[in-house]
C-alpha cells in the first residue's frame, strides 16, 4: 500500500484509483448516512476522489490513507447538507434504498431509525465506531472533537436509539 500511495503522490492516477477503490464503499456509506440519498452520496464520493487526488501530496503517512479519506468525506458531506438546508424532501428516498430482504430482522435498531433519530454528529460517530471500528481516540482525530465529547455524543445517540426501541415495543 505504501508503494501505491507513493506512486499516487507522484501523480499516478491508476495507483490512486486502485487505492481509492478499496475504500469507496466505506466512503459512500459514510456519505449516505450524512446526506440520506444516493445522488448526493455519489456527489460526495466524486468530490472526495477529486480533493484527495489533488491534495495527496499533503498526506504524510500512508498508513493514515483511509482515515484521511474519511475525514475528507465527512467535510464534503457536511458541505452538501449545508447547501441542501433549504430543500424540503417530501418523501425520504432512503425508504426505497433500504433492502426489502429483511427476513432476518429481529434487529433492535434499524437503518431507518439510525437515519431519522440521530443528528448528523451522532450519525457519523455511530458510523465510525460501529461500522468502521475506530477507537474513540481515532474518532476524535477524525471529527476534530475532544474525546470526551465524542464519547458523550455516542452514548447519547445510543440512548436515543434505545428509547426509540422501547417506544416501538410498547406500541406493538
Amino acid at each position: 500500500m505504501i508503494r501505491l500511495v507513493q506512486k499516487a503522490q507522484n501523480g499516478n492516477d491508476k495507483a490512486f484509483l486502485k487505492l481509492f477503490q478499496k475504500y469507496e464503499v466505506d466512503i459512500y456509506r459514510m456519505a449516505y448516512v450524512y446526506v440520506k440519498n444516493e445522488s448526493d452520496a455519489l456527489d460526495v464520493v466524486q468530490e472526495v476522489a477529486y480533493k484527495a487526488f489533488k491534495k495527496i501530496d499533503t498526506l504524510k503517512n500512508p498508513d493514515f490513507f483511509k482515515s484521511w479519506l474519511l475525514r475528507i468525506a465527512i467535510t464534503c458531506s457536511i458541505d452538501v447538507i449545508r447547501k441542501n438546508k433549504q430543500v424540503v424532501h417530501l418523501k425520504p428516498e432512503y425508504n426505497e434504498m433500504i433492502g426489502l430482504e429483511d427476513d432476518d430482522i429481529p434487529l433492535s435498531i434499524t437503518l431507518q431509525e439510525l437515519l431519522e433519530q440521530l443528528n448528523e454528529h451522532e450519525r457519523s460517530i455511530v458510523m465510525l465506531k460501529f461500522y468502521e471500528g475506530y477507537s474513540f481516540k481515532e474518532i476524535a482525530e477524525l471529527v476534530n472533537m475532544p474525546l470526551g465529547s465524542v464519547k458523550s455524543v455516542l452514548y447519547r445517540a445510543l440512548a436515543k436509539l434505545r428509547k426509540e426501541c422501547k417506544e416501538a415495543d410498547f406500541y406493538e
Binding site: 477503490q21 464503499v25 459512500y28 456509506r29 464520493v45 434504498m97 433500504i98 434499524t110 437503518l111
Partner: peptide, 15 residues
Amino acid sequence: EIEKIKIPKGLHERA
C-alpha cells in the same frame, strides 16, 4: 444495518 445501504453500480465511475 449500515451494510444494508445499497451500493450503486456507478460508484467507481464517479470516483
